[in-house]
Simulated assay, not measured.
Amino acid sequence: MYVYINICLYMLCRCNGKSENEKYSDDEERKSEYTFVSALSMNGGDGDNSYSTNSLLQRRVLSMTKPILVKNTKEMLTNLDFPKYIKVADLGCSSGQNTFLVMADIVNTINALCQECNQNRPEIDCCLNDLPCNDFNTTFKLITFFNQKLASEGSCFVSGVPGSFYSSLFPRKSLHFIHSNYSLHYLSKVPDGLEKNKMSVYITSSSPLSEYEAYLNQFQRDFTTFLRMRSEEMVSKGRMVLTLIGRNTIDDPLYRDCCHWSTLLSISLRDLVFEGIVSAAKVNSFSLPFYDPNEEEVKEIIRNEGSFQINDLETHVFDLAHCNEDCSLQTHRAKPGEKVANCIRALIETMLVAHFGDAFDIDTLFERYAHHVSQHTSCKNKTSVSLVVTLIRK
């Protein structure tokens, strides 16, 4: 197997050009509060707090979706009549081994089906996408790991594509297959129209209905944009396999249980306010750019956008008590609640530091987070809902 690496990294910088003494309009003030969204990336490297070390849940999700991934890869290849060149993209790849596990599954499926059908193996272009601040270096150090996962020889090209997947990333009609795991629940921005959140970083059962509507509206805009961008970049009959955090369809759209990860984060931040470590105003101005849709909301957006046909749409529930049990990924025995806290820290530390500042006591925050996880007996049976949708470009 010959793997050619082409890492094209660029940095996007934006400055507002205003001094701190200038007066802002209400909208401008709000935009300045939420500049931390541009820092959204998982913790890089391979240390104790890195995403690479604390992404076993995502790996288990990938294992669950593998049959769907393989099925759609085979159908794509057959319906496109075994093209000589195939371009695959993993959107929101982050850093670490997970993205190469996905790419290896896709490449191995393509090569195996070609051999089974007596077809020549195609050249395969594997494009790994995330925001420019993502740790691509750690990912590309794992090329040897990728090679070891490949079951047969062939030409495979690997490249990095920095940029938001809410924008154009690839030439028109160039992509054959897209994969995205646990990324599309992150929004391009914190929604407009949120009321003062009173130290709650996301929707809770006590939130006004307008907060749910604001988050839903932002998700509708972002997901529609994502579909429109990909429709321009994909060939006809190309496939997408998308997995995101969702919620079961229930009567109350505000319902989030006491162990929802964002609820525990709010409680932990309040602890720091009461202890005088951080100001209430600073916590009140922090809201998560995140939304967990249900099946019907996802279906409606896809149908309204109109470029894709839904091939599969499934809901899967995970027991989080078993999703971080892998001593090979931990350098020490974790205390009760610490594994869950480390997982959440790996996901959102960059945003927290960008908002609260470099002097923010991130260690104390997640000590409190781990404590609250351990105090809630119901958290031991906490479940997470994943939506898996596969789409065919019309």
Rank of each mutant, 00 (worst) to 15 (best):
V3D: 11
Y4S: 15
Y10N: 15
Y10C: 11
L12N: 12
C13E: 15
R14L: 09
K18L: 15
S19A: 07
N21W: 07
Y24T: 09
D26L: 05
D27S: 01
E29C: 05
R30D: 03
F36P: 02
S38E: 08
L40P: 00
L40H: 09
S41C: 01
S41E: 07
M42S: 03
M42I: 04
M42K: 00
M42N: 07
N43R: 10
N43A: 08
D46Y: 06
N49R: 02
S50P: 13
Y51D: 03
S52T: 05
T53L: 01
N54R: 08
L57E: 12
R59L: 01
V61Y: 01
V61R: 01
L62H: 10
M64S: 13
M64K: 13
P67K: 11
T78V: 12
N79P: 10
L80S: 09
D81L: 04
F82Q: 06
Y85N: 14
D90A: 06
S94M: 05
S94R: 01
S95D: 00
S95Y: 08
T99I: 03
F100N: 02
I110S: 04
I110M: 10
A112C: 05
A112G: 12
N120S: 12
C126T: 03
N129H: 04
D130Q: 10
D135E: 07
N137D: 04
I143P: 15
F145H: 09
N147H: 10
K149F: 03
K149G: 08
G154N: 07
G154L: 06
S155T: 14
S155P: 04
S155W: 08
V158P: 11
V158T: 14
V158M: 08
S167P: 14
K173H: 15
S174L: 07
I178N: 10
H179K: 07
N181T: 14
H185W: 06
H185Q: 12
L187M: 08
S188E: 03
K196I: 13
K198M: 12
S200L: 14
S206W: 02
S207P: 11
P208N: 05
L209T: 15
Y212P: 13
L216M: 05
Q218M: 01
F219T: 00
F219H: 01
Q220C: 06
Q220H: 11
R221A: 04
T224W: 02
L227D: 00
E232H: 13
E232W: 03
M234C: 15
M234I: 03
M234Y: 07
V235R: 06
R239F: 02
M240L: 08
T243K: 03
T249V: 11
I250Q: 09
I250A: 15
R256V: 09
C258A: 14
L265V: 09
V273N: 05
K282M: 10
V283G: 05
S287C: 08
P289D: 01
F290H: 00
F290I: 00
E300W: 04
I301D: 00
R303N: 08
G306K: 02
S307D: 05
N311T: 11
D312S: 03
V317G: 01
L320F: 04
A321Q: 07
H332M: 07
P336H: 05
V340Q: 13
V340N: 13
A341P: 04
N342P: 06
C343D: 09
I344N: 14
V353T: 09
A354I: 06
A354D: 10
A359M: 14
I362Y: 13
I362Q: 07
E367L: 09
A370S: 08
H371K: 05
C379N: 15
K380P: 02
V388P: 01
V389Q: 00
